[in-house]
Design a protein around this nucleic acid. Structure first.
Lengths: 244, 244
DNA sequence: GTCAACGATAATTTCGAGATTTTTATATAT
DNA sequence: ATATATAAAAATCTCGAAATTATCGTTGAC
């Protein structure tokens, strides 16, 4: 019965155990919905009805339910008892608070990372910076296609910076905040604007970290975060004024 | 069919919409399992089989699954694809990292709370301190019975201290860390030891906050957290040495 | 005697349907 | 005309069973 009624099962099950790919359907559903929320395919505040999600993604009710529950834990989705799920709303106030808090956490992690970084950390940092620089150069020519790839390498670079921080909990908290920030960043990028020289900012962070200049690195990284807030705030306020 | 097979449904459904009580079964299951983990009824590292949970709590598979997924988000439970759920393990290393991180977050929240606190905040603080003092006095006579009540009022007092901090995200992160700490605290309390004068520490925090002495409040609160770590660490290392 | 392959058992994961609650539309009374 | 109560409709919540996957004991070969 299941084999015929739900081709997804066999499709996912027969797929080779490829690393990085989703092994369970819940994970696949989580990844798919998460990506849609981050990229704006599911709008902030939108109601998430199961019938709609069923047709759109092809998963069963329980599977979708668990995926949504995961997303609630990541604060990308809100739930109200007996009233279903919604995409978490966005607001200027939340963006400001989020950015402030992320700066607080990320700078502390950066400090500890620089102080604890070994040769392997330097290697990861050099590699990540190189990869990011390559995609940044390509981005100016064809910005549409490499959006996901840029986000991915940007994530890798920022993670490499703090990867030598020994605190598991600081990493955990930072991960939550960083994902939230990524959402706002992508919202502001689809309404593409702002020819900012992010490469220069990344380069400054990279060099300060590699020379173990803690204060300079924190200052530059802090300014980087603040500048991102300023840009996103401008886009967000412009995009939200017609809607309310 | 469901009505006869699962009396829980009607029992929970027919219950009046009492505030504070669980409205949905998922919430009830989450609360029940969470309490069992916090109080040690489910031991750290223990495997959480559905058959066992079914008999113990009387919920269906999907309901339990969603409750466990919630707990994974709160880091009280771990999950491995296709291998089920386990109660999150505890360790001295994790306790040290957790305490350090919680101190970092909590002191910042305390600072902002004192700087932003209004009359209503002072009122909440005075009330919470009074309630905590009353149960602390009773605790020395009959320590067994009022354990849960003490934890509840202790939570309320510590929350009242930072309740005027305006950052939603700081509160969110602190909530995660505080719940984790509560788990360690209760583990160390079942192996009851240490006649520490916690009331004096609470009183010092209370007075420093009320007089708006930020530096003193942070110093006292920091020492309070560190001292709790020292006690818990001692108990935990003693309790874990036979097991490995 | 040790290791690998095989098979039976147990556990997890997923689905669709039934039960309950919320929401919306309608009709009636004030 | 507004508001309230009732009823139909839609959506959520929960459960038990089916299917997939992992685990463990056994047998056979080297």
């Amino acid at each position: 019965m299941h084999t015929n009624a739900a081709p997804n099962v066999t499709a996912a099950a027969l797929a080779p155990p490829k690393q990085g790919a989703a092994r369970s359907l819940v994970e696949a559903a989580h990844e798919a919905i998460c990506h849609e929320i981050l990229t704006g395919g599911l709008a902030p505040g939108e109601k998430l009805r199961f019938e709609m999600l069923r047709k759109r993604f092809g998963f069963g009710a329980s599977t979708l339910r668990e995926a949504l529950t995961r997303l609630v834990g990541e604060a990308l989705v809100t739930s109200e008892e007996q009233k279903g799920f919604r995409v978490a709303p966005v607001s200027l106030e939340d963006l400001a608070d989020l950015t402030r808090t992320r700066k607080f956490i990320e700078l502390e992690a950066l400090r500890e990372s620089i102080l604890n970084g070994d040769d392997a950390w330097e290697g990861r940092l050099v590699s990540a910076f190189h990869r990011l620089s390559k995609v940044e150069a390509k981005l100016s020519s064809g910005p549409e296609l490499q959006q996901d790839e840029f986000e991915h390498r940007n994530n890798e670079f920022h993670y490499a910076l703090i990867s030598a921080c020994p605190s598991r909990w600081l990493h955990h908290l930072h991960g939550i905040l960083y994902q939230q920030s990524e959402r706002y960043r992508r919202i502001s990028l689809v309404n593409r604007v702002v020819p900012r020289d992010v490469h220069a900012e990344h380069k400054a962070m990279f060099e300060a970290a590699l020379t173990r200049n803690v204060e300079l690195a924190c200052q530059v990284a802090g300014e980087h975060i603040e500048r991102t807030l300023a840009v996103m705030g401008k886009v967000l306020s412009a995009g939200m004024s017609p809607g309310g």
